[in-house]
Amino acid sequence: MDIWRQWQDGTPFNTLDPNLKESYDEVEVMKCIQTGLLCVQENINDRPSMVTVISYLNNLSLELPSPHEPAFFTLGRFMDPKVTNESSSNQSAKSSTLFSVNEIV
């Protein structure tokens, strides 16, 4: 299950590496996950600047905005909208390629 669904379900710690064996600070992990989700918002104006990201990560008492569903969230993947509109035969050939909005993989 992907991080967005885990976030929505209230179980984001399920995405962590099991080798951590709860040797992490839950507040710090939540802050990192939430910051990451904020960085992939569909509306670029809703994404934090790097200065803001640094302040989020350095100040654990700072309350972050709630993220919305990430851009191009489809079946747990970030997909190029052109790929999702192609026929199923063409789409299956490209289904293993992940895209972002700005086409940087």
Rank of each mutant, 00 (worst) to 15 (best):
Gln91His: 10
Phe72Tyr: 15
Asp25Tyr: 02
Arg77Leu: 07
Ser55Trp: 03
Val101Glu: 07
Ser100Pro: 07
Phe99Cys: 15
Leu75Ser: 15
Lys82Glu: 12
Cys39Lys: 05
Asp17Phe: 02
Pro12Ile: 01
Thr35Phe: 00
Ile104Gly: 13
Pro67His: 05
Val53Lys: 06
Ser95Ile: 14
Lys31Ala: 01
Trp7Thr: 00
Asp9Thr: 09
Leu37Val: 01
Leu37Phe: 01
Ala71Thr: 09
Ser61Lys: 14
Gln8Asn: 12
Gln8His: 08
Thr11Asn: 13
Pro81Gly: 01
Arg47His: 09
Met1Gln: 13
Met50Glu: 13
Val83Asn: 02
Val27Ala: 14
Met30Thr: 07
Pro65Ile: 02
Pro12Asp: 02
Thr15Gln: 11
Ser61Arg: 12
Lys21Gln: 15
Ser96His: 15
Thr97Val: 11
Asp80Gln: 09
Leu98Asn: 14
Ala93Arg: 15
Ser66Glu: 15
Ser89Lys: 11
Asp80Val: 05
Trp7Ile: 01
Gly36Ala: 08
Phe78Val: 10
Asn45Val: 06
Asn59Ala: 03
Trp4Arg: 06
Asn102Tyr: 10
Cys39Gly: 03
Ser49Cys: 08
Gln34Gly: 04
Glu26Ile: 00
Asp2Cys: 09
Glu42Val: 13
Ser95Ala: 13
Gly10Leu: 02
Asp80Asn: 14
Lys31Phe: 01
Glu28Cys: 05
Phe72Pro: 05
Asp9Gln: 14
Gly76Ile: 09
Thr15Met: 07
Cys32Ile: 08
Tyr56Pro: 00
Ser95Phe: 10
Leu98Gln: 13
Gln34Tyr: 01
Lys94Asp: 11
Gln34Thr: 12
Cys39Leu: 02
Glu22Met: 05
Phe73Asp: 11
Ile33Gln: 03
Asn90Met: 10
Ser66Gln: 14
Met50Lys: 07
Thr84Ala: 09
Met50Asp: 08
Ser95Cys: 08
Ser55Ala: 10
Thr35Arg: 04
Asn43Met: 13
Glu86Trp: 08
Val29Arg: 01
Ile104Trp: 09
Asp17His: 10
Arg77His: 13
Leu57Val: 08
Asp46Lys: 14
Gln6Lys: 12
Thr35Trp: 02
Gly10Tyr: 00
